[in-house]
Amino acid sequence: MTFFPLFLLLSIFLRGACFAEGQAILLTDEVQLKIADSFMEEKEYYRAVTEYKKYLILFPASDKCAYARFRIGTAYYSGEEYESSAKAFALLRQSGPEEYGVKCGYFEALSYWKLKKLNEATLTFRELAATHPQSELAPNALAASSLVALEKGDIAGSRADMTLFIERYPLHPGWSRIREARSMLWEHESLPRKSRVLASVMSAILPGSGYVYAGSFKDGITAFIINGLAAAGVATGVHQENLAVSGIVAGVGLPFYFGNIYGSANAAGKWNAAAKEKHLDKIRNTLGFDF
């Protein structure tokens, strides 16, 4: 009776062992890589990263290690883990084989761009275009660099990148589009802007008018009504010699008055940012590059 549980456990163990014997799979580097690649195909990026890392641990001497490292970077990039992808690509670019240098540089720069590290992105794109001008990614790098420069507000840098592209790649299918985009840079420099100071002053004089100037017509009406009601309340209180009521209404109304000045300046800033973004989109569409 005492041996019964032991016997039961032993039989289960032996059964499991036999089953494993029948299903044995030899884990070669190709199998491991196939597992990782299949996860990538299924867009299971984080599991793919784990499998590629397992590959690097199990088969460190394999000639496909650089490929696995590149795929780790790609998986991070596709999974929108841009900090990790930038690190992975930078490391492979520095210590990996030459064949991955250009691709790693390109994706590293794209990762910086996604992270809004615009200076690093520009530097990496320009370095790639300068060191590997004949590679197929170099024109894309120059186009991307011009857009990053534009995002930074560096119009001269953007124009220089586009000019370099036009001089260097006259047979590129995107050549005419780059020329068109370059001509649009002049417009970008002279985009209409709303002055924050003017908006604030206008709202200080007539509440709500700054919002209207900055394009927020409905907010302007609301600000005018709120401040108008507060002013009427204070005036009525003073007129009826009820200073306590005037004080309370003024206490509530004053933050709205100053808030209206702040909001007008803010609305002008938002208007400028929206106009800039709209024009940037126009340039991006003209460039037609898929990043």
Binding site: S216, K218, D219, T222, A223, I226, P255, F256, F258, G259, N260, I261, Y262, G263, N266, K270, A274
Partner: peptide, 23 residues
């Protein structure tokens, strides 16, 4: 100081006309 101004501005913008077309 700034927080109250920002809140007052937000309360002003939280009106019946707000919508995605306002940005």
């Amino acid at each position: 100081a700034v927080g109250i101004l920002m809140t007052a501005d937000r309360l002003t913008r939280c009106n019946i006309w707000k919508g995605p077309e306002s940005g």
